[in-house]
Amino acid sequence: MKIDYFIGIVPPGEYVERVERFQRKWIRQSGVEPHITLKAQGGLTPDKKWLGNVKRVCENISPFQVSLGKPKYFGNNILYLSVDSAELHTLHQKIVKEISPSHELIKRYFELDDFVPHLTLGKEHYGGNISTPLSKDGLTEMERAAEEELTPYPAFKVDFVRVYELDIVKRRYETFLDIYLGG
């Protein structure tokens, strides 16, 4: 049994619901609630020894603002909402450096210099069969609809980060722990 974790930032509840309603038009079941990825799986081991390090980093970071923006693509097969926040980059770098994943894991999960904060809307192919794949046409349709249905894109205060754990029975990432910023 493989236990996977990652760390994300959750938009305000009403916007999470709005994105989930939007996604359900194309995707039967998403593998996780809408979130901004802060730290991918690399180095987040099942023993959870990294958790204390993440808590220490978060204690020393003040709450900050994040703005969601227009849809963009990774390649041509992952559609996401863009994210703007210098503080988010700083928090990402501090957490990655504290956890110290291998260079290979940093590259595999596009961290540090390759980090692009984002809120995924849909993917052409999902790994691990966690969700329903979309066609390229479906992604194009989703992009057009997002510009109408998900605007205005919100700006919001981040005062906690969420650690997600993969529930292998539900085939979905669920909340494991919320860690508040600034102690």
Results as ranks from 00 to 15, higher is better:
138 G>E: 01
78 I>A: 11
58 C>P: 06
146 A>S: 04
124 E>S: 07
11 P>S: 03
16 V>H: 00
78 I>W: 00
23 Q>H: 08
140 T>N: 15
87 E>N: 10
7 I>F: 00
138 G>Y: 02
12 P>G: 01
4 D>G: 12
136 K>H: 13
121 L>H: 04
148 E>T: 15
116 V>L: 03
125 H>Y: 14
29 Q>W: 06
153 Y>V: 03
136 K>E: 11
52 G>D: 07
30 S>A: 14
110 F>P: 03
91 L>V: 12
16 V>Y: 00
70 K>C: 09
115 F>A: 01
95 I>Q: 04
36 I>W: 01
30 S>N: 14
101 P>V: 10
168 I>R: 14
150 L>M: 06
18 R>G: 03
136 K>A: 14
68 L>G: 14
13 G>E: 14
90 T>S: 15
148 E>F: 08
28 R>K: 13
91 L>S: 11
81 L>I: 02
107 K>Q: 12
39 K>Y: 12
65 Q>C: 14
27 I>D: 02
49 K>W: 03
84 D>N: 15
153 Y>C: 06
35 H>D: 01
42 G>A: 07
86 A>Y: 15
72 K>G: 08
44 L>A: 09
177 L>F: 05
15 Y>K: 08
85 S>K: 02
156 F>K: 02
85 S>T: 04
122 G>D: 03
130 I>N: 05
105 L>Q: 13
130 I>K: 05
32 V>L: 01
62 S>I: 01
161 V>T: 12
154 P>K: 02
49 K>I: 06
118 H>P: 05
61 I>H: 11
58 C>G: 08
34 P>F: 01
47 D>Q: 05
142 M>T: 07
176 F>S: 09
35 H>L: 00
115 F>T: 04
39 K>A: 10
154 P>D: 04
127 G>E: 10
117 P>Q: 01
170 K>L: 05
2 K>L: 00
21 R>P: 08
98 E>A: 15
168 I>D: 12
161 V>N: 09
157 K>C: 14
23 Q>W: 05
104 E>S: 15
13 G>W: 12
138 G>P: 02
158 V>T: 10
80 Y>L: 03
40 A>L: 03
14 E>V: 10
18 R>C: 03
155 A>V: 13
39 K>E: 08
110 F>T: 09
160 F>A: 04
76 N>Q: 10
108 R>M: 09
37 T>N: 11
102 S>G: 06
124 E>P: 03
41 Q>C: 05
94 K>Y: 06
90 T>P: 14
165 E>A: 10
146 A>V: 02
67 S>V: 05
23 Q>D: 05
92 H>V: 00
48 K>Q: 08
57 V>P: 06
76 N>P: 07
178 D>T: 11
167 D>K: 06
15 Y>W: 06
59 E>K: 12
105 L>C: 07
177 L>M: 09
118 H>R: 08
124 E>K: 09
37 T>C: 10
120 T>N: 04
126 Y>L: 01
20 E>H: 02
65 Q>M: 15
3 I>A: 07
82 S>M: 01
100 S>M: 00
134 L>I: 11
91 L>R: 11
30 S>Y: 12
39 K>G: 11
44 L>K: 11
86 A>Q: 15
